[in-house]
């Protein structure tokens, strides 16, 4: 059984950076374009993210994610290009539909920001094993129970889907049609839900007992098997990132 994860194992500088520093980076990189909403600023952050992804050797994995949001971005361009409130300067006309410079620029600003968010999170998720990321947050005060939920979702969803296929096989063995037209598939889905949900509930109940007898609710301070490996200079990098965010904030407020 595989744990759900987008993590790509590579040997790169970015992979060596500890999860917490990366989380701070993502936070700064995502937030600052909203504080400083200029096109050039957002675009340069996006470019930095792209370069970091190149450095991490994971650019290929980003392409499907980007292409998925491409449709949404296209819609933004079409709608803002035509209907943005401050539209004045006509750029071009197709089939009597006029597109304006102001709208297109505005759409570009939103889209770049969206892509930036996407790239920043991809950088974190593609280069950090989820377990390490969660543990790094639990170390810094995130409730261990929340950490457990995040961990277990990654493991238990694949488990549920394998359960679902067992139940489907059982139903198929008793003559239920599960393949064919969309309608047949929908009909086959309904009787699957009952047993799947019930068995998951029972499993969860039992698992919670198993967790309890292993001190899940213990009041003592948690310890960790794995030591956190923080490469040199990360503290300075974190401070630099936060100072950068502060600078952006000050710049915006005084502008």
């Amino acid at each position: 059984m595989r744990s759900l994860s987008l993590y790509v194992k590579r040997n790169s500088l970015i992979h060596k950076i500890d999860p917490f520093t990366k989380i701070i980076y993502v936070f700064v990189s995502v937030i600052s374009p909203f504080i400083m909403p200029t096109l050039i600023f957002s675009a340069s952050l996006t470019l930095i993210n792209l370069m970091l992804l190149l450095l991490a050797k994971v650019v290929k994995r980003v392409i499907p994610i980007i292409s998925f949001v491409f449709i949404i971005i296209l819609t933004i361009f079409v709608i803002q290009g035509m209907f943005y409130g401050a539209n004045q300067t006509k750029l071009f006309t197709i089939f009597n539909l006029s597109f304006y410079v102001e709208g297109i620029l505005y759409a570009a600003k939103i889209s770049i920001r969206a892509i930036n968010v996407l790239l920043a999170f991809s950088l974190l998720i593609l280069t950090t094993p989820p377990a390490e990321m969660i543990e790094s947050l639990v170390r810094r005060g995130m409730p261990a129970k929340l950490g457990y939920i995040m961990h277990s979702v990654l493991q238990i969803i694949p488990m549920m889907s394998s359960n679902a296929s067992i139940i489907m096989d059982a139903q198929r063995a008793r003559g239920m049609e599960t393949e064919g037209s969309l309608w047949v598939r929908i009909k086959a889905f309904i009787p699957l839900i009952g047993p799947l949900v019930m068995s998951s509930l029972v499993n969860t109940h039992e698992r919670s007992i198993a967790l309890e007898v292993r001190g899940f609710s213990a009041a003592t301070k948690k310890t960790f098997l794995h030591q956190e490996e923080v490469p040199g200079g990360m503290k300075q990098l974190r401070i630099f990132l936060l100072l950068f965010l502060a600078a952006v904030l000050v710049w915006r407020l005084t502008l």
Binding site: S3, A131, G147, Y148, H151, S152, Q155, I156, M159, N203, E206, R207, I209, A210, L211, R214
Partner: peptide, 14 residues
């Protein structure tokens, strides 16, 4: 330790 070995795995560790 109880019957179902599967449900005694924490699910949080790889």
């Amino acid at each position: 330790v109880f019957q179902d070995p599967f449900n005694q795995i924490s699910g949080a560790k790889l």
